[in-house]
Design a protein around this nucleic acid. Structure first.
Lengths: 225, 225
DNA sequence: AACGCGTAAACTGTATGCAGATTGCAACGC
DNA sequence: GCGTTGCAATCTGCATACAGTTTACGCGTT
């Protein structure tokens, strides 16, 4: 094989890290679907490396829960049971409620303003029914919320859980009227946080995720199982 | 090299899985200390395998957060900052509070009885000041508590967090009077759960971990940093 | 004696080869 | 015609070889 060290122009990190990010991205963004095979040789060819780094990347993705691995079988994009999916959504509700509560107590003035700005910015996207753009703002909004708890470990857990849920939550904004409802729910969270009302923020965040969960499980159900 | 397939008598799983378990165990039980190097070749020799499975095991342990890895550097047993340690303890409080709350609502009669039994069984160990044995019962008690929430993903998160905290929590029961206090705290949790009082159970579990956290950080402080 | 520099040793990153496991297919028997 | 068995192709698991990087040490210079 050639090996002329021309591994594209991705700048950051080691080969394996790059592959982990690339593959995780494909899974999370829905380029690859739950249950799809991740054959080592194909990936090696695709990324122009040998199987060794591919294997390490797959193992790491396995540890993250994004792919399932069994001995002597190809790795496959994680396809969780409906029960486990449900437990992840419930965990998301709990985690997000914690973040909202802690955020209401701990966020700096700047963080609060940034959150509110992010929220307000997405208002016009609701009217335009710009689902893609709204989804991007939505992600950023939630990231700011999670950061606001000022707890790195909780941030790690909630981020990882969110990533694992992503493949099953893709279509949520296609439900008619969901965009507007989502915006309203965010509004309650933001308002509560601005007031420093941790109980209300927590409650609002919990229900918000619970609703997203319901919306998503409908769409997931034809993939899971 | 020989390769006479005599890799000890550990029965389950692939080579890498066995190594992950073995190394994780050494870290969690304190045989290896935070900051200690995990050189690939030494481990390979020790386990009588080549470096390839060792590397995969280390990568998995890295993903779990039990070891730290940097490019072109040996993996080392994870040594977290005091800030991150604090965030993990806080997360533990929150997670355990959730488990207690959900447990108070969801545990079956059998689960409640088993939890109470486990708790009562450790009473005599308190009087004997049998720290080792109490620690074992303590682990089992908390596992039952986590299971009681009937949420697999939360169980996964809390278990993983607990494992990462283990190296920094080892000495907690050596504080004078800690055993008795721990028992009393458990008692409040158990009683609340038996009554189905989720708010009280949640509150009790939260404070319990917060106290353990304080007790542990004292001991951790000469290791961390 | 202290500091820099260069080289070698030690170690990680990656490629490749081989052995064992699995799967699909085809030929055969019922 | 359908199920079963055996073989071949494919793929994973692990070992080994090699390349690139970091670290440590010793030598020479000041």
């Amino acid at each position: 094989m050639k090996q002329i060290r021309r591994r594209q122009v991705i700048r950051t990190g080691t080969t394996v890290e790059q592959m982990v990010r690339a593959i995780a991205d494909m899974i999370v963004t829905g380029v690859m679907h739950p249950g799809e095979r991740l054959d080592e040789l194909s990936l090696a060819v695709r990324f122009d490396v040998s199987r060794t780094p591919v294997r390490e990347a797959l193992r790491e993705l396995g540890a993250m829960g994004l792919v399932d691995r069994e001995p002597n079988r190809s790795a496959v994009v994680a396809n969780v049971t409906e029960a486990y999916l449900h437990s992840m959504f419930e965990a998301m509700s709990e985690l997000e409620a914690i973040c909202a509560r802690l955020g209401a107590e701990r966020m700096t003035i700047d963080e609060r303003h940034a959150l509110e700005l992010e929220h307000r910015a997405s208002a016009r996207l609701v009217h335009a029914n710009a689902q893609e753009d709204y989804a991007a703002h939505n992600t950023e909004f939630h990231t700011k919320l999670y950061r606001g708890a000022h707890n790195d470990h909780i941030y790690e857990m909630v981020t990882q859980t969110r990533a694992r849920l992503a493949p099953f939550r893709r279509a949520q904004f296609r439900l008619p009227g969901r965009l507007a409802k989502s915006y309203d729910e965010h509004d309650v969270i933001v308002t509560s946080i601005m007031r420093g009302d941790s109980a209300a923020a927590s409650q609002a965040a919990y229900s918000h995720v619970a609703i997203v969960s319901d919306a998503s499980i409908v769409f997931a159900s034809d993939k899971v199982g």
